[in-house]
Design a binder for these strands. Structure first.
Lengths: 136, 136
DNA sequence: AGTGCTGGTCTCTTTTTGAGACCATCGTTC
DNA sequence: GAACGATGGTCTCAAAAAGAGACCAGCACT
């Protein structure tokens, strides 16, 4: 792990990085973030961070993903270089998905967000309840 | 900031946290993550981390968001407790959006991911090009 | 011959998103 | 005094994305 990702920048610097210096569209950072902010991407990266999985295993692990979205999300993750796909010539052929080095390096900061969520999901749930009560 | 979010857990622990101990559906961590993994959520949190903004300012800052999605994403962020909405009785009324304490505490780990993206967007772009070339 | 497992694709329906018109009110301008 | 712009939205309709489930080929086992 490169420790530089832990060296905090000022909010303004981060802001400029994401916006591309004042222009929110056509920004590479935003492009990368949106690539991993899909509904299933982080979940699959998380699963594969534990160990490599085969297609059917992932499907059983995440029961509420459709086969279609599993195929497509894995394809997108592979295209962006986070996931490696390997076909084994068994009968029938089996396919194993695993994180690449890039994927593992991305999982490190993602883990921070997951830990935050773990510590704060109560606060979020309470905020929702309070908000819905105030609306009614 | 609670420094505990920086104390790394094992991958397996994180995995169990997100899956709810083996069950990927009905998991509070996953619920929170999916709430902030929408297409526009992180972008708006980022903008508001710099300073509070008014509705129209956000719209001009993020030119490719529709008014409809801006309204709805801000509503969702407010409901989950990340964003505070304040109406000022000017003529016509103006509305200011700002991060709550919860929103600011969530922005800290999000920032890690943004920094990772900033450092690695070249690698991702190259992976895409290589993948597309291999497919053709 | 029938059944199951593999990792998908194809089609159809429902949900989500995007594009753009419309709205009420007030201040300013012509 | 009538037109215009700015405020922060909502409403409708079209397009895109996602979910549900049928289907497929090949081989093993019974």
């Amino acid at each position: 792990m490169d420790s530089k990702i832990f060296s905090l920048k000022s909010k303004l610097e981060v802001y400029k990085a994401m916006t591309g210096g004042g222009n929110f569209a056509d920004c590479p950072v935003r492009d990368v973030i949106q690539g991993i902010s899909g509904k299933w991407s982080s979940l699959l990266v998380m699963a594969l961070a534990e160990k490599p999985y085969r297609f059917g295993e992932l499907r059983r692990l995440v029961p509420d993903i459709s086969q279609r979205m599993l195929t497509q999300t894995l394809y997108d993750l592979q295209r962006d270089g986070y996931v490696h796909r390997e076909v084994f010539p068994t009968k029938p052929p089996s396919v194993e998905y695993s994180l690449t080095d890039l994927g593992r390096s991305m999982f490190a900061p993602l883990q921070m967000l997951i830990q935050w969520a773990e510590l704060n999901h109560d606060a979020v749930r309470e905020a929702r309840v309070a908000f819905d009560a105030a609306q009614a």
